[in-house]
Amino acid sequence: MNVSILQMVSIVSYSNAYLNDQLPEISNQGEKISMYCNKVLFHIPVEGNETQYTTQAPIDWFLSLKYRGVQQVKLHYKSVPNLNMPERMSAGFVGGAGIWMVETVLDGKSEFWYSKWQVDEHQRKLGSDRIWTVTYKKAPITELLTEVYTVDTQAEELKLILSELVSFCSEIKESGWQSIFAGAKTVLDNAKPSVSTYLKDMIVDGGYTPEALALMEAADRSYVFGGMGSWNDVVSFETKEQESTYLALSDKLYASLNKCILAFANSCVIDR
């Protein structure tokens, strides 16, 4: 999965845990959400002068949520139409998977926080695997149309698409991809996550149903969009019909995965 999306999923998880007073269980949240990052910072506008801001580390941002009157924290996504290239073609790269934001819900309005990822050249030259500095800033908007997706509905939708992909991969003799899609479908069929999923390290334990965790793992396993060697790189087909099927299934899968991520991430939202 795109690492910038995964980081936001993690922030939503820990934010709602803080709002639900689950402090003892999440003392190491800073390490977990900082995968590949040298720094993760939040720029908080100064009240009365939003051209100035204070900088908060994730732990301080989490602790400030109740003080600022935040009631819920959600994940928000909006696709970005591109006539030259489908969004799924750039989805494996930082900033290439549409507009994802963290939504903090207050009384009568929302705040939307977007991330900016920049390479820290000093860390890169040192050969560190933590080369990114990530800054979250508040967008100048207070309301956006938000679609609501449920875990059950998205699990059923994704299962159908994965079944189609398994059959299609068998037809075009792509056994490797067939195995990947079949494995993701098996997780959904079992309605619980496998013991090996690393996503358990990115979210607060106990905040999700087994079905929700299975959906997130299946979405992660089948998030096959990236650069060279990814599903986007499958280009050889025997017939035009196969190529058309590949394009249609790829678009369906990408759209479904985004809804699955939203359904999972927002299933931990608390009611206040």
Rank of each mutant, 00 (worst) to 15 (best):
N2H: 01
N2E: 05
S4G: 13
I5W: 06
S10G: 09
S10V: 15
I11E: 11
I11T: 07
S13F: 15
Y14T: 04
Y14I: 15
Y14M: 09
N16S: 07
A17E: 08
Y18F: 10
D21I: 05
Q22P: 00
L23H: 12
L23E: 07
L23S: 06
E31Q: 06
S34G: 02
M35E: 00
V40R: 07
L41P: 01
F42Q: 04
I44F: 08
P45Q: 07
P45F: 08
V46M: 06
V46D: 04
E47S: 13
T51S: 10
Y53W: 15
T54E: 09
L63K: 15
L65F: 10
K66R: 15
Y67A: 12
V73H: 06
V73W: 03
K74N: 00
L75H: 07
Y77R: 14
S79P: 00
V80H: 04
P86Q: 09
E87G: 07
M89I: 14
S90L: 04
G92R: 00
A97R: 06
G98A: 01
I99P: 02
I99D: 15
W100Q: 14
W100T: 13
V105E: 06
D107N: 09
G108Q: 02
S110H: 03
S110Q: 13
W113P: 02
W113R: 04
K116G: 11
Q118M: 04
V119L: 13
D120T: 07
E121N: 03
G127Y: 10
D129Q: 10
W132F: 13
T133G: 01
T135M: 04
T135N: 09
K137A: 06
A139V: 02
E143V: 12
Y149P: 00
T150K: 08
T153V: 12
T153A: 10
Q154P: 01
Q154S: 11
E164V: 08
V166A: 02
S167A: 14
S167K: 12
F168C: 08
C169D: 02
C169P: 01
S170H: 15
E171Y: 03
I172G: 11
K173T: 06
E174K: 12
E174Y: 02
W177H: 05
G183S: 04
T186S: 11
T186H: 08
L188D: 13
D189M: 12
N190V: 11
A191V: 15
K192P: 09
P193V: 14
V195D: 06
S196A: 12
S196Y: 07
T197P: 00
D201S: 04
D201F: 12
D205V: 06
D205K: 10
G206N: 01
Y208H: 13
T209M: 00
L213D: 05
A219P: 09
D220A: 07
S230G: 03
W231N: 01
N232Y: 15
N232L: 09
V234W: 10
F237M: 06
E238V: 01
E238D: 14
K240L: 15
K240C: 07
Q242E: 14
S244K: 14
T245V: 14
L247P: 02
L247C: 12
L249Q: 04
K252I: 03
A255S: 05
S256I: 13
N258S: 01
I261K: 09
L262D: 07
L262I: 07
A263G: 01
F264M: 09
S267P: 05
V269E: 05
R272K: 13
